[in-house]
Design a protein around this nucleic acid. Structure first.
Length: 221
DNA sequence: ACTCGAAATCGGTACGCGTA
DNA sequence: TACGCGTACCGATTTCGAGT
């Protein structure tokens, strides 16, 4: 999972999801994501494939749409979902599955817009049984993402794309080597934490222990 | 201890074939 | 049509050895 800097959002960052993260969060398969992209059903809006080895990057809205599609896909054929998406796109919804709360009754599609329930005129033959609660999907996804993000204090990890893959405190971009350097210069754990308020005592100890271990094994090797 | 470059590895996509 | 599966391929990252 990536965070991208952008000036478009007040918070300064927004989330970008690799296909790996999307798979973890939606339970869709890699082949499904590829097929849905190929056929234009649900495409990654941040970055599409540009040859082998490049990443598909999905926005949060893409993720919500995929999650909704994955849930609907359990009971509906893809063709029906395609028709539904195409129908709402005609109404200028760029990502209907992530934007529209819709349901069907007596052959008519209803949807909610700005808090007002409206009837979609001439809803082709889209027949959706049941409803999709976008708000619940959003809450559910947020919980899952929080769980993925949750830091376990005292854990060291290497992550692709983070500090050139060097060992860092899990969930951060703080290299264990930086902690080690400061401790070697005579700072104690509390001093180090002043520089990194987010870290716990356990993080500092783990980083120091990790560096001691790797440096010792490098010497003996 | 540090730097550099080559090789190995990893995580991902592309593609073709098979199938329900 | 809507994938699953196996294999080839790609680009980024990691590892490792040699040189300084």
């Amino acid at each position: 999972m990536y965070k991208m800097k952008t000036s478009m959002f007040p918070s300064g960052t927004y989330r970008v999801f690799s296909s790996r993260a999307v798979r973890a969060l939606t339970k869709l398969t890699a082949r499904q994501l590829q097929y849905w992209d190929e056929t234009g059903f649900l495409r990654p809006s941040i970055s599409t494939r540009k040859g082998r080895g490049t990443l598909r990057l999905y926005s949060f809205r893409d993720l919500v749409a995929l999650k909704v599609a994955a849930e609907l896909r359990g009971t509906l054929p893809l063709q029906t979902l395609r028709r539904l998406v195409a129908y709402f796109q005609k109404l200028d919804y760029t990502s209907p599955l992530a934007q529209v709360h819709f349901w069907v009754g007596r052959g008519k599609v209803y949807f909610r817009e700005a808090g007002v329930t409206r009837e979609a005129h001439r809803p082709e033959q889209s027949l959706i049984e049941g409803t999709v609660q976008i708000r619940e999907v959003l809450a559910d996804l947020s919980r899952q993402i929080d769980r993925l993000d949750a830091r376990t204090p005292g854990r060291i990890e290497r992550r692709r794309g983070v500090m050139s893959g060097k060992p860092v405190i899990a969930g951060t971009r703080i290299p264990t080597a930086s902690i080690w350097r400061q401790v070697k210069e005579g700072l104690d754990a509390d001093d180090v934490r002043k520089g990194y308020p987010g870290l716990t005592r356990k993080d500092i100890d783990a980083a120091v222990a990790f560096e001691k271990r790797t440096r010792a094994s490098r010497r003996t090797a």
